[in-house]
Design a protein around this nucleic acid. Sequence first.
DNA 1: GTCTATAAACTGATAGAC
DNA 2: GTCTATCAGTTTATAGAC
Lengths: 198, 198
Amino acid sequence: MARITGSNGERTAAAIRRAALRLIHRHGFAAMNLRELAAGVGIQPGSLYNHITTKQGLLFDLMQEHMTTLLAETDAALAAAGPALIDRLRGFIAHHVLYHLERKQEVYIANFELRALDPPNAACILAMRRAYEDRLIALLEEGVAEGTLAMSDVRVTAYAMLAMLTGVCTWYRPGGRLGRAEIVALHVDLALDGIRRR
Amino acid sequence: MARITGSNGERTAAAIRRAALRLIHRHGFAAMNLRELAAGVGIQPGSLYNHITTKQGLLFDLMQEHMTTLLAETDAALAAAGPALIDRLRGFIAHHVLYHLERKQEVYIANFELRALDPPNAACILAMRRAYEDRLIALLEEGVAEGTLAMSDVRVTAYAMLAMLTGVCTWYRPGGRLGRAEIVALHVDLALDGIRRR
DNA sequence: GTCTATAAACTGATAGAC
DNA sequence: GTCTATCAGTTTATAGAC
């Protein structure tokens, strides 16, 4: 039988995660204090501890949730793409850009607050990031092997592509000159033009 | 007549800047405390204030010095390149990558600690960053106008190029698989391949 | 210019009533 | 689950002796 009381707890927990993403993205993890976070949720500072273990644990949970979602959605996008390598590569790039446009906060935090994690937590997130990078590296190697792609150094190219595609996070603002679909299309071309064999 | 006493002050000030760059790069500005900074320099915390105004003022000085140097060196690299657009563009890219390889700490701080600056200070640094971006945008527009370059959107392309070229900071380690000259050459090609008309 | 000492405010986290 | 109250430690910054 479903619980009726206590349902407020999950709404509060979700509100904490939402407010934390906003504040960490804006001020950085170290500069965000728990009083400010509690005020953003509309509860008292002490009440936070009904939903989080520590400030550090909160950051880790946010990052882990983000990386898990990113990996799962990426694999879904790859599975949904056509079987040809170029289609899967387009699928990867388009998904990466769209995901990064829609979840700027999570992406920014996962990329730049790794140093705020305790070493064991950082190792866990880093392993997930490596797994993500390996998805792209595998695609590039496949393209080189079959002869449709050409590049001097697969690993450097993969890092350069990811840096370029992630860069949209730093300047994109909803309601700007370009729509999301346009930005995605521009970046698919930018990323592919340099590596397609011709 | 040159002062003889007090010459230790400038050495201390330089040591503070050096230690601050290292600590901010490693832990972030908010997470760096002045006790740790003083210990890194080998003085007591209170003595820092003979050389800095506030912690905020220290960050601003570091960023301003970095941006001034970047702009000056970039203009020197452009002036030293051949008159042809493609040579100036190569010069810009090669200088950008090499500078970012050699001054990882400054670059990282200037890019990711902007949110730690007070609004007036942030506006000042942001204006210098815009001036830097405009150097590249002007080159791309010149290339499109003369017909040697082709791209769908100059501004998006410029941001994408800068993000890609700056990305080396996040993974480059001295003594790694690739030397600096190789990394520079790889990125010049990666950045140009997508925009040269063919 | 550096030191010691300390002010004044802020921080993450806990205890116990409701 | 939320509240009030508070602990214990840390933070930036200052004052005054040497």
